[in-house]
């Protein structure tokens, strides 16, 4: 049995053996927003913020998250309304199939909390672990540089 704080709420779960935090979130805690697309840390769809660090929840052993604090896509918005990143991405056409979207929102939110005005290069490098197969990234970059106030002229 593990005790974790998920999006500010104390939860307990009983992960099976070495199962990943992603599996625990999705299948045991009713939080399917984090997506499973590769399970080897190569796509970022399962990104969560664990004790302040951006990680792939598929590579976190749930049993090792005992006592930790986790923020997922379900807890990333701004008290029920879209945060600035979410707002900008939807408006710029940065969402197509949407499977990568939760991971990108979490990763971008983590970036902007540390650095509110990243350059385009910083945004691209910080999100290089998040694969999107639909958009070609252009609309997402336009959205995020707009939020950062660092749009290329």
């Amino acid at each position: 049995m593990i005790r974790i704080t998920v999006n500010g709420v104390a939860r307990t779960a009983d992960p099976a053996g070495p199962e990943s935090l992603l599996t625990t979130l999705r299948d045991r805690l009713g939080l399917p927003g984090s997506k499973n697309a590769c399970e080897q840390g190569e796509c970022g769809s399962c990104s969560v913020i664990l004790d302040g660090e951006l990680v792939c929840s598929c590579l976190v052993m749930a049993a090792d998250a005992d006592g930790s604090e986790v923020r997922t896509i379900e807890g990333i918005d701004d008290h029920g309304t879209l945060n600035a990143i979410q707002e900008a991405m939807v408006g710029a056409g940065g969402v197509q199939c949407g499977f990568c979207t939760p991971g990108i929102v979490v990763a971008a939110t983590h970036l902007f909390e540390a650095n509110p005005h990243p350059t385009e290069g910083e945004i691209r490098e910080a999100l290089a672990g998040n694969i999107c197969r639909c958009t070609g990234y252009g609309a997402i970059v336009r959205a995020l540089t707009a939020v950062a106030g660092t749009e290329a002229s």
């Binding site: 997922t72 896509i73 879209l82 979410q86 991405m89 939807v90 949407g98 979207t101």
Partner: peptide
């Protein structure tokens, strides 16, 4: 469907 997708819902 942009809003539900951006919220992970």
């Amino acid at each position: 469907d942009g809003i539900p997708k951006i919220k992970g819902e």
